[in-house]
């Protein structure tokens, strides 16, 4: 009966399929992570107390469940290292996202104002870096930023600096790397929302008494808000969990949460604490999503 109804309505399958996918490949693994985060380390392979020792009978299972504790989460709060890592991740993501918005908006705006036949070309130019592996591009930046790299040579040739500047292992290098890598994710949604804006709206605004700047603030920016929101989310969320760029370009004195996570997993082999870190990270990342949704609802409901 159920199967027949499903086949009678292919649309229903299409609606269920993504949920099944999410349940199988996101929810279930995440449940494992939550479980691991509640158990303790053990000298074993893998290095934690077994998830649910079903093979050893009911009593053993009950004993295992009784051992679960929030100790790992308590550790995350009590040890400065984790809190500072979270804060640094959020700060870096916020600063980098803000820089990208400032750089990306004019680029997207300029693209949307190009003659129609040049817009696809501009799109390709934005996407072209993806054709090279992400890691290779970061290594290229190491090359550019190193002591006798292209940047220092250029600056010295132009007599802007006398001695080579130390770029590598600084926050500046990290921000350069992050902004460079994520900028397309900011530009593309902005461009999408700006490109479909009717130019007549700006003429209407001018006709009703707006200067160009005022029309930009009152018309263009509000209309591109969905693009701004999407761009911010697409950049902010992955940057919070970013591991490679800070590891390769920033100094090792302060860590982002991704680096801390890596350290717990691979150096300390403390999977439970690492899992707890990941669970908290996910909770932290839900916050901007909720804020975004709330803002969107408010925008829909407002005057």
């Amino acid at each position: 009966m159920m199967a027949r109804r499903l086949f009678a309505r292919p649309a229903r399958i299409a609606a269920i399929a993504p949920y099944l996918w999410m349940a199988l490949f996101f929810l279930l693994p995440f449940a494992f992570v939550v479980k691991i985060s509640l158990s303790q380390t053990a000298i074993a392979q893998p290095p934690y107390v077994p998830l649910i020792p079903l093979t050893e009978g009911w009593a053993a299972t009950r004993a295992a469940l009784a051992q679960l504790s929030l100790d790992n989460f308590r550790l995350l709060i009590s040890d400065n290292l984790y809190v500072l890592s979270y804060l640094r991740s959020l700060t870096v993501a916020a600063v980098a996202t803000a820089i990208m918005l400032l750089i990306g908006y004019p680029i997207a705006y300029g693209m949307s104002r190009l003659p129609a036949r040049w817009q696809p070309v501009a799109m390709v130019l934005v996407i072209v870096p993806f054709w090279t592996s992400f890691l290779i591009r970061i290594y290229a930046w190491i090359n550019i930023l190193q002591h006798d790299g292209l940047l220092n040579k250029t600056l010295m040739a132009l007599r802007i600096v006398r001695e080579p500047v130390t770029w590598l292992s600084t926050d500046t290098a990290m921000y350069i790397g992050i902004v460079y890598s994520y900028l397309p994710f900011m530009i593309l949604p902005l461009y999408a929302s700006l490109a479909k804006m009717d130019h007549a709206l700006l003429e209407a605004a001018a006709d009703l008494g707006c200067s160009r700047l005022k029309a930009f603030w009152l018309i263009t920016v509000p209309i591109s808000l969905p693009g701004i929101g999407a761009g911010i989310l697409l950049c902010f969320i992955p940057i919070v969990g970013e591991f490679v760029i800070p590891d390769l370009l920033a100094g090792s004195d302060r860590m982002m949460i991704g680096q801390t996570l890596w350290l717990e997993f691979f150096t300390n082999k403390d999977w439970p604490v690492a899992s707890a870190t990941a669970v908290v990270l996910l909770a932290v990342l839900l916050i901007p999503l909720l804020v975004y949704q709330r803002l969107q609802q408010r925008q829909l409901g407002a005057d």
Binding site: D198, E203, A205, A206, D207, L208, G209, L225
Partner: peptide
Amino acid sequence: PHQRPFNMMFQNYALFPH
């Protein structure tokens, strides 16, 4: 445009969607 005492009704209305 806004210095002229004229107003325009646009072909596709150009209503501000937001």
